[in-house]
Design a protein around this nucleic acid. Structure first.
Length: 270
DNA sequence: AACGGAACCTGAAAGC
DNA sequence: TGCTTTCAGGTTCCGT
């Protein structure tokens, strides 16, 4: 379930699990998530390498290894990383596994799971275009309103669709775009270039707020009681078409833009 | 160049 | 209950 906040959590976890550690073994079956090299070649390139650091930009992860190569990982729609005991059984959706740790207490198995296989995993000697061509990352770089406004001013498409373009801002997905537009009271169907400067500012704040709240929630999962219905969907309007707008009470509407569902409030998003 | 739509996949939930 | 349909938080490619 990966937009920027989830990938940021994964980056923090991978840093804790892998930074400074040497990969003692790797188990990688052939699958379509692997790019450029065979499973066998990727496995061989990983074993014996130390992980120097893990970085995130947008929805991409980059693990720098001690031979100047890097692992690039993208979660697609259904990717995630987990830590398991060394002897935990292989899971159906397991696409890659590396084992680390020199001492018995520190040994662990880090696994990339991805049932739908829309993700990407590759080893590269240079940064890939998908990484270098990303726009500013809201968490890493912040959002400069002037730069953002200039980018939006060149686009004729709907603002919602433009927010999903990773070269404008990196890391925004369907949920964050939907939530941020609601926070900013902007109709997702408006052309990007039609936004006033103050609306661009409101949108930038909405994006940072939505990402920040999702991140805080994901980083400190509260105990959720089974009977608590709100636990299912923590978002303000995403996935809530037909329900009353939490701000003005009008029924939330659903439209499809660029093949993706958009929920918005016809009452207070203008 | 820019746009809409299809394609790539599996699995969970909703519908009948 | 069980089969069928729909939908999913992403990206890329293809034809217009």
């Amino acid at each position: 379930m990966p937009e920027l906040p989830e990938v940021e959590i994964a980056a923090r976890n991978l840093t804790r699990w892998l930074q400074g550690k040497t990969i003692t073994s790797a188990h990688i079956p052939e699958s379509r998530v692997l790019r450029g090299r065979s499973a066998r070649a990727i496995t061989a390139a990983l074993v014996g390498r130390k992980v120097l650091r893990v970085d995130r930009r947008g929805k991409w992860l980059r693990a720098s290894l001690d031979d100047d190569s890097s692992v690039f990982l993208h979660f697609g729609m259904s990717g995630r990383v987990v830590r398991r005991a060394l002897d935990a059984p292989t899971e159906r959706s397991e696409r890659a596994r590396v084992d680390v740790g020199a001492t018995p207490a520190s040994r662990a198995s880090i696994r990339y799971l991805d049932p739908r296989m829309f993700g990407h995993l590759s080893i590269e000697s240079e940064d890939i275009a998908a990484w270098t061509e990303l726009g500013p990352d809201p968490l890493v770089d912040g959002i400069d309103t002037r730069t953002f406004a200039e980018a939006l001013g060149q686009r004729r498409r709907a603002i919602k669709e433009v927010l999903l373009d990773q070269t404008v801002l990196a890391g925004i997905g369907n949920i964050q775009a939907t939530e941020a537009l609601w926070l900013a009271r902007i109709d997702p169907r408006r052309r990007a270039r039609s936004l006033e400067v103050r609306e661009v500012g409101a949108l930038a704040r909405g994006i940072l707020r939505s990402i920040g709240e999702t991140l805080a929630r994901d980083a400190s999962p509260e105990v959720v009681y089974v009977r608590d219905a709100a636990a299912d969907n923590p978002f303000r309007i995403y996935g809530r078409a037909g329900e009353p707008c939490p701000r003005c009470g009008a029924p939330l509407a659903r439209v499809v833009q660029g093949g993706r569902a958009t929920v918005f409030c016809p009452g207070c998003q203008r």
